[in-house]
Measured scan of single mutants.
Amino acid sequence: GTEIELESKNGQREHYTATSEDEARKIIEKAVRRGIKRIELRGASEQLIRDMQEIAKQIGLQYRTDGSL
């Protein structure tokens, strides 16, 4: 699965493990709508990382991946 670590603007951290790319995408989209400061992805697919970079650029988000592409 993909591990997703979120940090909201007030510094609250949340951790999710998505079993599918679809689920990961839903978690990320929800977080973005809620207003999130930072997202870290571990074990994400190349496609998901590309999507994440696109989203991050659009809304000026900090993100990090573990680089295991």
Results as ranks from 00 to 15, higher is better:
Glu7Leu: 13
Ala31His: 06
Glu14Trp: 06
Thr19Gly: 10
Ser45Ile: 04
Glu40Asn: 10
Thr19Tyr: 13
Gly67Met: 04
Lys37Ala: 10
Gly35Met: 03
Ile39Ser: 00
Glu3Asn: 09
Ile49Val: 09
Lys37Ser: 11
Lys26Ser: 13
Ile49Met: 11
Gly43Lys: 05
Ile28Cys: 04
Asp51Thr: 12
Ser20His: 06
Ile36Asp: 05
Gly35Pro: 03
Lys9Gly: 10
Glu5Pro: 00
Arg50Val: 07
Gly43Thr: 05
Leu48Gln: 02
Gly60Pro: 02
Glu40Arg: 11
Glu54Arg: 08
Gly11Thr: 03
Glu7Gln: 07
Arg38Asn: 07
Arg34Ser: 09
Glu21Cys: 07
Arg33Lys: 13
Gly11Leu: 02
Thr65Val: 15
Gln47Arg: 09
Gln47Glu: 10
Ala44Tyr: 03
Asp22Gly: 08
Glu5Phe: 14
Glu21Tyr: 13
Tyr16Gln: 03
Arg64Pro: 15
Gly60Glu: 15
Gln53Lys: 10
Gly60Ser: 04
Thr2Lys: 00
Ile55Ala: 02
Arg38Phe: 14
Tyr63Gly: 15
Lys26Leu: 12
Glu5Gln: 11
Ala31Trp: 04
Arg50Phe: 06
Gly11Trp: 00
Thr2Arg: 02
Ala24Trp: 02
Ile49Pro: 00
Glu23Tyr: 04
Arg34Ile: 13
Gln53Arg: 11
Lys37Phe: 07
Lys26Ile: 14
Leu61Glu: 07
Gln58Cys: 14
Glu54Gly: 05
Arg34Thr: 12
Arg33Phe: 05
Ala56Trp: 04
Arg13Cys: 13
Ile49Asn: 09
Glu40Leu: 14
Gly60Tyr: 06
Ile28Phe: 15
Lys30Ala: 14
Ser68Cys: 15
Leu61Gln: 02
Gly67Ala: 06
Val32Tyr: 04
Glu3Gly: 06
Arg50Lys: 09
Asp66Thr: 04
Glu46Ala: 11
Ile59Glu: 15
Gly11Pro: 00
Glu7Val: 10
Lys9Glu: 12
Ile4Tyr: 01
Thr17Cys: 14
Leu69His: 05
Arg38Gly: 06
Arg42Pro: 02
Ile55Pro: 00
Ile55Leu: 14
Glu23Thr: 03
Gly60Val: 03
Glu7Ile: 10
Arg33Ala: 13
Arg38Lys: 10
Arg34Gly: 12
Leu48Lys: 00
Lys57Pro: 03
Ile59Arg: 11
Thr65Cys: 15
Gly43Val: 02
Ile27Phe: 08
Thr65Ala: 11
Tyr16Lys: 03
Met52Glu: 00
Arg25Leu: 12
Ala24Leu: 08
Gln47Cys: 10
Lys9Phe: 13
Glu14Ala: 09
Arg42Met: 11
Asn10Leu: 08
Arg25Ser: 02
Glu5Met: 14
Glu3Arg: 08
Ile59Pro: 03
Leu48Asp: 00
Asn10Phe: 08
Asp51Gln: 09
Glu7Ala: 04
Thr19Val: 13
Gln58Ser: 12
Gly60Arg: 04
Ser68Lys: 07
Gln47Thr: 09
Arg33Ile: 13
Val32Gln: 02
Lys9His: 12
Glu23Cys: 09
Tyr63Arg: 14
Ile27Val: 05
Lys26Gln: 11
Glu21Asp: 14
Ile28Ala: 01
Gly1Ala: 13
Gly67Asp: 10
Asp66Ile: 04
Glu5Ala: 10
Glu21Trp: 05
Ala18Glu: 05
Thr19Ala: 12
Leu6Trp: 10
Ala56Asp: 01
Lys9Tyr: 11
Tyr63Cys: 15
Gln62Leu: 10
Gln47Tyr: 03
Ala31Val: 08
Arg64Met: 15
Ile4Thr: 01
Lys30Trp: 09
Arg33Asp: 06
Tyr63Ile: 15
Gln47Ser: 12
Arg34His: 12
Tyr63His: 15
Ala44Thr: 02
Glu7Gly: 03
Leu69Gly: 06
Arg38His: 07
Lys57Asn: 11
Asp51Arg: 08
Arg42Val: 11
Met52Asp: 00
Glu54His: 06
Val32Ser: 03
Lys30Leu: 12
Gly60Trp: 07
Lys9Leu: 14
Met52Ser: 02
Glu21Phe: 06
Lys37Tyr: 04
Asp22Arg: 07
Gln47Trp: 02
Arg34Met: 13
Gly35Ile: 02
Leu48Arg: 00
Glu29Pro: 00
Thr65Ile: 09
Lys37Pro: 04
Ile55Tyr: 11
Ile4Ala: 01
Glu54Ala: 09
Ile4Asp: 01
Met52Lys: 00
Thr65Pro: 15
Glu40Ile: 13
Ala44Ile: 03
Glu23Trp: 04
Gly60Lys: 06
Ser45Gln: 02
Gly43Phe: 10
Glu29Cys: 14
Asp51Trp: 14
Glu29Val: 08
Asn10Pro: 03
Leu61Arg: 02
Asp22Asn: 06
Gln58Leu: 12
Glu21Arg: 04
Arg42Leu: 08
Lys57Leu: 14
Ile28Pro: 00
Asp66Trp: 00
Glu54Ile: 09
Met52Leu: 14
Ala31Asn: 04
Gln47Phe: 04
Gly35Trp: 02
Arg38Trp: 15
Ile27Gly: 00
Glu29Arg: 06
Gly67Cys: 15
Arg50Thr: 09
Gln53His: 10
Glu54Thr: 12
Arg64Tyr: 15
Ile27Pro: 00
Met52Asn: 00
Arg34Asp: 13
Ile4Leu: 05
Leu6Cys: 08
Ala56Leu: 04
Glu3His: 12
Arg50Glu: 07
Arg38Cys: 13
Ala44Val: 05
Leu48Met: 05
Leu69Ser: 06
Asp22Val: 09
Leu48Ile: 05
Lys37Ile: 14
Gly11Arg: 02
Leu61Met: 05
Arg13Tyr: 10
Gln12Asn: 09
Thr19Arg: 11
Gly35Asp: 09
Ala31Cys: 06
Ile55Ser: 01
Leu48Ala: 02
Arg25Asn: 01
His15Trp: 13
Lys57Tyr: 08
Glu7Thr: 11
Ala31Arg: 02
Leu69Pro: 07
Thr17Gly: 04
Ala18Tyr: 06
Glu3Lys: 11
Gly43Pro: 13
Thr65Asn: 08
Arg38Asp: 02
Ile28Leu: 13
Glu7Asn: 03
